[in-house]
Amino acid sequence: MAETSFESRARAAGLRSFPNDTAKLEALVKDLDRAAASLRGPRHYAQEPTTVFRLQPAATSR
């Protein structure tokens, strides 16, 4: 049986095969792919993420 694109992606990512679960897992992957695609739109190169450092000033010593 030919390998599906989903199975080849899973194999390329080093994931074990899911012989009985392929159909239902494909549905999840479609959802994740759709979510990712919706986030790939154009954005300014300098747009910051929410995860940024906000360091506390160090105490000064005399």
């Binding site: 992957v29 994740l32 990712a36 929410t50």
Partner: peptide, 26 residues
Amino acid sequence: RDRLALAPLISASDYFQAVRRRRLLC
């Protein structure tokens, strides 16, 4: 297992785009 086992198919770039988008949504 079903919900998480395939998370490695999400690329680092896509994760980071989500975090950037999150800032705009906030």
